[in-house]
Design a protein around this nucleic acid. Structure first.
Lengths: 197, 197
DNA sequence: TCGTTTATTGAGCCGTCAATCAACAAACCT
DNA sequence: AGGTTTGTTGATTGACGGCTCAATAAACGA
């Protein structure tokens, strides 16, 4: 066995470079060469490690989803009670690591990719299912049967805030994003009992 | 002067074809040739009328935004009172013409385009400003100073529902989309007086 | 009829980019 | 040292797509 196993290092560098480049130029214009240069190696090496441009994109997407998932799980583990679980999900979604400009830009491009590439579609579907199930689990003790519909609202809201951030001219602000979604959550919880349906 | 001025006809055909093709393949893979073929003409003619691929994309984007804007204005003209104005905006946003799969797909790609092309960014910014100002105008008589923040929530919610629809496997359902956003609106309006902040 | 304007296209140039390959470099083992 | 595995790249290829252009067809006016 080699002493320095460079493969994972190279792959990680390429994945990070891909995220940045994709966010900046879109999957449309970004070339393997650009990504490789940013990662400090030749285009040939990128092909050597990932085989194809598409495979590299999917790896980048998996990485973003993995990091996000890990952060959510970590925050949930510390939460005591349903309200804290909700807060944990929101804060993880808009944390400094996930709510960065380039990551948000990459997300947007992944959505576009998902319209064509089945594997990308599958990955996004997994993310959405997990998010929904986490939300429902936290909401159920608070509002019972309403948990499903309310989870759908919050989920759409999170995606919407992400989408808008991709276009915003100023740097992403996790705090205000949490406040925005948090208001919807508070409304939905507060309405319990005030209205029949 | 020619009897039949084909130019506007050709341009409209190209714009519609572009929307469909973009939604299906993304701005990445779609070629001018594909769009032109769908519109029933040669790629050379598409270049003749629009000059460049990017100009064609922007024309398609303008068309989508124009149709949407006209529909909102039309619905607002018929509305009596703030509540009906809110409903009018929602229904126009998710009407059968705007909430079609290919149109939603095109929207998504326009967002990506806006990350690189300044003119696309400008167009999206105009759309967002108009939507917000319409929402605020309708909300102000109902909730006063809260109109601004609530409009931001509803706006993000609409975008989020659009985004999710682009990925959904079943056909877009305007009714359920209106219900989703409508619930947030109802919550926000209902909360008036129940909470201090 | 004939020239002029308008509409349209096939062919091709030019550039780009994903992917391949053969060769080189370096670390390791024996 | 010699050989083998691992890491890396420049050069090349093959394909493709945006865009141009010269040429054709058709509609019109005089």
């Amino acid at each position: 066995m080699r002493r320095t196993n460079v493969e994972p290092i190279r792959k990680a560098a390429l994945v990070n470079a891909a995220i940045s480049e994709i966010a900046q130029a879109g999957t449309l214009d970004v070339t393997v060469g650009q990504i490789a240069r940013r990662a400090g190696m030749s285009a040939a090496l990128a092909h050597h490690y990932f085989g194809s441009k598409e495979a590299l994109f999917l790896a980048a997407m998996r990485h973003v989803l993995t990091v996000y998932g890990a952060e959510v799980r970590g925050a949930l583990a510390l939460a005591r009670g349903p309200r804290e679980r909700l807060d944990a999900i929101l804060h993880a979604s808009f944390s400094a690591t996930n709510f960065r400009r380039d990551v948000v830009g990459a997300w947007l491009n992944f959505y576009v990719l998902a319209q064509t590439v089945p594997e990308a579609r599958r990955l996004l579907a997994v993310y959405q299912r997990r998010l929904r199930s986490n939300l429902v689990a936290a909401l159920r003790p608070l509002i019972g049967a309403e948990a499903g519909p309310v989870a759908d609202r919050i989920g759409a809201m999170i995606d919407g805030v992400y989408l808008r951030e991709a276009l915003g001219q100023r740097a992403p602000d996790g705090r205000s994003a949490v406040a925005l979604v948090g208001a919807v959550v508070a409304d939905a919880l507060g309405m319990q009992g005030h209205r029949p349906a």
